[in-house]
């Protein structure tokens, strides 16, 4: 294998750590960060190695604790790239840190799309198909073969994905930085990231109202229809932008917003509006 041959001994050790730490990315999964806390957990060894003082480490840790979601075997690839960018940031004083999350956000959507269909849609079905036949014949090997087959590919992908991401990042990010092209990259990555966040806002944030005006047994106003005529997914988009305004203006913390969402939702449910 050629991948990662240029890494030194220390970096190879970090790669093994990345492999072990990227596996449990989703163990603390929650709707706000998804695998974001796991992402930061996986990057901790890199952050501790690259940054010597506490403020820089805290800033890096906070940066990496953001919404992140993708298929696990491909997650390490993004982690590798993020790690290489943290390294560049530690070495270069005027590195634009917003490029890190821009690139993460740009990559997670497409990788999740490919990863979910390859691993859940194709490879799992192949492995399960073989295992089902074995289980029907009463062989205890069925579950074992299923796990070994599926995870061999799963783990190989996860290990080499991390190495590939890190070495690609190390090679190109510093070259891009030295050529003064990082702002071009950041802008392009932010555009891709914003498009993906727009698409995710529609697919992840769901809302439907049940407000219905009925007069004499005839429906005269179906609010959801009216809202859809104005703009589809209008309410989720407005709620997302509202949360964004609150967070950016530091008017409310995450806990307050989450609590508000729960209270308002139950209230709306009592009124029969949702």
């Amino acid at each position: 294998m050629k991948i990662g041959s240029e890494l030194d001994k220390d970096e190879k050790k970090l790669m093994r750590k990345l492999f072990w730490r990227s596996g449990p990315m989703y163990i603390s999964v929650n709707p706000v960060l998804m695998g974001g806390s796991g992402f930061a957990y996986a990057l901790m060894p890199f952050i501790n190695k690259f940054y010597k003082n506490k403020e820089d480490r805290a800033a890096a840790l906070e940066r990496e604790t953001q919404y992140f979601s993708t298929t696990i075997p491909f997650a390490s690839f993004v982690m590798g790239i993020a790690a290489s960018m943290e390294k560049e940031n530690a070495q270069s004083p005027d590195f634009d840190v917003s490029s890190i999350n821009a690139i993460k956000t740009g990559l997670m959507g497409p990788l999740a799309g490919i990863g979910d269909s390859l691993f859940w849609g194709v490879w799992r079905v192949v492995c399960a198909g073989i295992a089902i036949t074995l289980a029907k014949q009463g062989s205890f090997l069925a579950p074992i073969l299923f796990l070994v087959m599926f995870n061999a590919i799963n783990y190989i992908c996860r290990y080499y994905g991390g190495v590939l991401g890190y070495s690609l990042g190390s090679k190109y990010i510093s070259r891009i930085y030295q050529n003064g092209l990082i702002e071009v990259l950041t802008k392009a990555a932010s555009v891709l990231g914003l498009i993906m966040v727009g698409a995710m806002t529609v697919s992840m944030v769901l809302f439907k109202t049940k407000i219905n005006l009925v007069m004499g047994g005839k429906e005269i106003l179906d609010l959801q229809n009216v809202l859809d005529t104005i703009f589809k997914n209008l309410v989720p988009v407005l709620i997302t932008l509202g949360c964004f305004k609150l967070l950016r203006g530091k008017k409310a913390g995450i806990i307050t917003i989450l609590f508000g969402i729960v209270v308002i939702s139950i209230l709306l449910s009592f009124l029969g509006w949702v």
Binding site: P31, T105, V197, M200, L241, C243, L247, I261, I266, S269
Partner: peptide
């Protein structure tokens, strides 16, 4: 009503994650 309200809230919660990403990317 409680279960329904909680489900509605659960469906809206990813908005906070999206808002955090926007905070990072917005220009």
């Amino acid at each position: 009503v409680i279960m329904n309200g909680l489900t509605v809230a659960g469906n809206l919660m990813p908005a906070v994650g999206m808002a955090m990403l926007l905070q990072m990317l917005w220009r």
